[in-house]
């Protein structure tokens, strides 16, 4: 069975799609990815599509599914490297990829993911003192 490789880098997962995916391969990627998010407790997914010459409605829908599934599993998804011709075609096709965050380069995509993780860390830290205060007042 063919698979698209998924690389793990700290709390993120990286995917570089380098082949023209047939439909089953795209669906397999969805399954593999959700499994890996849970297995590693990943907080971010970066999908590089710079090698893709075509993104049709099926692949567009798959990217949207991946973003939604990841969100439910507490991970953010960023799609990077879309070719200009692909962007023009997708919009004319009627697919503007709602709900999918995009960045032009892998570097920018990683910045977005890191920013997300830092923000959620800060939110957690901000909540901590309150919990501590509640705890002490009960004693």
């Amino acid at each position: 069975m063919e698979h698209i490789p998924i690389l793990r880098m700290g709390s993120f997962l990286l995917i570089t799609v380098q082949v023209d995916m047939h439909d089953r391969l795209a669906l397999q990627l969805q399954d593999d990815l959700t499994e890996r998010i849970v297995q590693h407790g990943s907080h971010g997914v970066l999908i590089d599509i710079s090698a893709l010459e075509v993104v049709d409605s099926f692949i567009g829908r798959m990217l949207g599914n991946i973003a939604s599934m990841s969100r439910v599993l507490d991970a953010q998804t960023v799609v990077v490297g879309m070719r200009p011709a692909v962007a023009i075609t997708l919009v004319e096709l009627g697919m503007s990829l709602p709900g999918i965050r995009t960045a032009l380069t892998v570097e920018r995509g990683m910045e977005i993911l890191r920013g997300d993780v830092e923000n959620s860390m800060q939110e957690l830290e901000a909540e901590e003192p309150e919990r501590a205060a509640d705890g002490s007042s009960e004693v």
Partner: peptide
């Protein structure tokens, strides 16, 4: 751009 549109249309 036209190549991409044609291939995408064909795929659909």
């Amino acid at each position: 751009v036209d190549q991409t549109k044609i291939v995408t249309a064909a795929s659909e």
